[in-house]
C-alpha cells in the first residue's frame, strides 16, 4: 500500500500507511479528550485531517476569503536569531512589510517584565522609533517569568528548594510574594509602553512557572484594564495545562492549577484580556498526525467557549508544529489550515 510522507514531532520525516495515520489521528484526539474532559473530534473532522495529510502538495492553504489575522510574538528577536543582522526596528519592518504580519510585537532580548523595568525609558524610545516606520498594530511583549522573583534571581526563597524539604507552606508563601512583585512590574512596564503609544500589551508564555505565574498575569490584566479601559491585552500561554506548583491559588474562586485551554480562556475573559493565545505542546516521540489531532481537539474546545478572539500559538513545538528550530513548511501549512478551518480561529 502507498505510504504517505509526514513527520514525527521532532520534525524528522516518516512514511506512514493510511491505517497508521488514521489510527494516530484517532489516538491523538482521544488523548486530548481524555485529559481535557472535552469532546473528541468527529468522524468528519478526522476525515478532513486525514485528507490534509494525504494531500500530495508540499504545502496547503485556506481558501481565499478565509484568511485570518497573522501575528508574531518575539518578532524583534527572531530575525536576529536567524543570524540576519538587523536591529529591532528593522525586524519589525521586515515582519510587517515582507512577512505580511498583521500585528507586530516589540520586545527586549530578556523578554521578561522584570528586567525591562529599569530600562523602560530605552524601550519607550525603541517603541517610538518603531511606531514612526510601521503601520500595523504594535504590541509590546514580555513574559511574567515568575522564576525571576525567587533566589538566585530574586528576593524570595526558591520554592523548588523548599518543596523537597517538605516546607510546603513556606514555598507557597514565597510564590504568593512573587506574584505580588510580578504584578507591580507588569503593570509598571505595560503602563509605560501603553502611555508611549503601544497599541497593545502581550503577556507571553504566561503560566511557564505554574499557577502563580498565571495568577500574576490575570491580576496585572485586571489592574491594567481598570486603568485603561480601551487597552488591548493578549494572553499567550506557556503550556496546555496550568502546572500546579502552588496548587491552591484561585482566581475569583476558581482553582487555577490543572486548567486546560477551555477553562484558561474563561479566566482570561474575567481578567479583561482582549485576545487569548492557547498553547498545546507537542510530543516529539509521536507523529504529527497524532499531535495535530490532539492540538486541534484542545483548541477547538477553547474556541467553542470563548467570547474573545483566539489567536492560537503555532510554532516550534506547539500547535501541532514539530519541535525543531526551522519548522517545516509542509507541516506548518497543514497545521495552520486545520486550525483555521476546524477551530474557526480568529488569528494565528
Amino acid at each position: 500500500m502507498e505510504k504517505i510522507m509526514t513527520r514525527m514531532g521532532d520534525g524528522f520525516p516518516v512514511e506512514m500507511s493510511e491505517s497508521e495515520i488514521r489510527s494516530d489521528l484517532a489516538a491523538g484526539t482521544e488523548d486530548a479528550a481524555d485529559r481535557g474532559k472535552i469532546a473528541p473530534l468527529s468522524k468528519e473532522e478526522l476525515q478532513y485531517l486525514y485528507d490534509l495529510f494525504a494531500s500530495p502538495y508540499r504545502f496547503v492553504s485556506v481558501e481565499p476569503g478565509n484568511e485570518i489575522v497573522l501575528s508574531y510574538d518575539g518578532g524583534a528577536l527572531k530575525i536576529v536569531r536567524a543570524a540576519v543582522n538587523v536591529d529591532r526596528v528593522q525586524a519589525m519592518q521586515i515582519h510587517e512589510k515582507i512577512l505580511g504580519a498583521d500585528t507586530i510585537e516589540l520586545g527586549h532580548v530578556d523578554y521578561s517584565f522584570k528586567p525591562v523595568k529599569p530600562i523602560v525609558g530605552t524601550e519607550q524610545t525603541a517603541l517610538e522609533q518603531t511606531l514612526m516606520v510601521t503601520h500595523a498594530p504594535l504590541f509590546y511583549g514580555a513574559m511574567p517569568n515568575l522564576g525571576l522573583y525567587s533566589q538566585p534571581d530574586g528576593p524570595h526563597p526558591n520554592p523548588l528548594d523548599l518543596l523537597p524539604l517538605g516546607k510546603i507552606d513556606e514555598a507557597r508563601e514565597s510564590y504568593e510574594m512573587s506574584v505580588e512583585d510580578a504584578v507591580k512590574d507588569i503593570v509598571f512596564v505595560a503602563s509605560a509602553m501603553y502611555d508611549s503609544g503601544a497599541d497593545g500589551i502581550n503577556m507571553d508564555t504566561t503560566g511557564a512557572a505554574g499557577d502563580p505565574d498565571f495568577l500574576a498575569g490575570l491580576k496585572a490584566a485586571e489592574i491594567l484594564k481598570e486603568k485603561y479601559p480601551d487597552i488591548c491585552i493578549e494572553l499567550g500561554m506557556a503550556g496546555e495545562f496550568i502546572l500546579g506548583l502552588h496548587g491552591e491559588l484561585d482566581y475569583h474562586g476558581d482553582r487555577l492549577a490543572g486548567m486546560y485551554p477551555q477553562d484558561q480562556v474563561k479566566m482570561a475573559e474575567k481578567a479583561g484580556f482582549t485576545i487569548f493565545g492557547p498553547v498545546v505542546n507537542i510530543k516529539t516521540s509521536r507523529s504529527v498526525p497524532w499531535n495535530l489531532s490532539r492540538a486541534i481537539t484542545f483548541t477547538k474546545a477553547c474556541c467553542e467557549v470563548a467570547n474573545i478572539p483566539i489567536h492560537a500559538n503555532m510554532g516550534m513545538g506547539v500547535g501541532g508544529v514539530p519541535m525543531t528550530p526551522h519548522p517545516p513548511l509542509d507541516i506548518v501549512s497543514r497545521a495552520s489550515k486545520a486550525m483555521v478551518e476546524i477551530c474557526r480561529l480568529d488569528g494565528l
Binding site: D211, L243, H246, A257
Partner: peptide
C-alpha cells in the same frame, strides 16, 4: 503529568 495532581500534593504523598 495530566494536571490532576499538583507538586505540593506529590510531596505530601511522598512523605
Amino acid at each position: 503529568d495530566r494536571g490532576e495532581v499538583f507538586l505540593p500534593g506529590l510531596i505530601i504523598a511522598s512523605d
